[in-house]
Amino acid sequence: MKVYGVTGWKNAGKTGLMERLVAEFTARGLRVSTLKHAHHSFDVDHPGRDSHRHREAGAHQVMLGSANRWALMTELRGEAEPGLDALLSMMAPADLVLIEGWKRDRHPKIEAWRAQTANPLIAPEDPTIRAVASDTPLDTAGRPRFDLDDTAAIADFIAGELDL
């Protein structure tokens, strides 16, 4: 599977860029999946729902299925968080998996950056960041810079990098 990441600090525009890239690559006829890292406790289930009750009772995995989608939740219950490679191995085949987060993993990435956050660029210290998408001109440590909203150009760059 071909993978490419979107990384950056909080409020840098990562999720919006991910949304636009998924739509762009899908419109180009690719099957696209996404994988997002959450740094905090999250839940896709809700107290009182049958599936939540199953999990609370101790189920290791709970699968929900319908005519529109299915989802599999796995409770770690103290086990180590699976790494990126382990999670990717559980995904169905796709032409492209876009990864949001996982700053420190070694897959190729584009960094999203917004001036209002005033965070330092990650790119100068990370050779896996191949380009920067920002809302203002800035020194990108020799990497290509794209306007954060120029989705087609960013998608073209990623497609070229991955030979899509």
Results as ranks from 00 to 15, higher is better:
2 K>Y: 00
5 G>Q: 00
7 T>F: 00
7 T>L: 05
12 A>P: 10
13 G>A: 05
13 G>Y: 11
20 R>T: 12
20 R>Y: 10
20 R>F: 03
24 E>V: 01
24 E>H: 05
25 F>R: 01
27 A>N: 09
28 R>S: 06
33 S>C: 02
33 S>G: 02
37 H>G: 10
43 D>K: 06
46 H>P: 08
46 H>I: 14
46 H>K: 15
46 H>V: 13
47 P>F: 03
54 H>I: 10
55 R>W: 09
55 R>D: 08
58 G>H: 15
59 A>R: 00
62 V>K: 03
66 S>I: 13
66 S>Y: 02
67 A>P: 07
69 R>A: 13
71 A>F: 06
71 A>V: 10
72 L>R: 04
75 E>G: 02
85 D>L: 08
90 M>S: 06
93 P>E: 07
93 P>L: 05
95 D>Y: 02
98 L>F: 00
98 L>C: 01
100 E>K: 06
104 R>D: 12
106 R>M: 09
110 I>M: 11
112 A>Y: 03
116 Q>D: 15
117 T>C: 12
117 T>G: 14
119 N>P: 02
124 P>I: 15
125 E>Y: 11
125 E>F: 09
127 P>N: 14
129 I>K: 07
130 R>C: 13
130 R>Y: 15
137 P>A: 14
140 T>A: 03
141 A>N: 02
145 R>G: 04
151 T>R: 11
155 A>S: 09
157 F>K: 01
157 F>E: 05
158 I>R: 01
158 I>G: 04
160 G>Y: 13
162 L>E: 03
162 L>T: 05
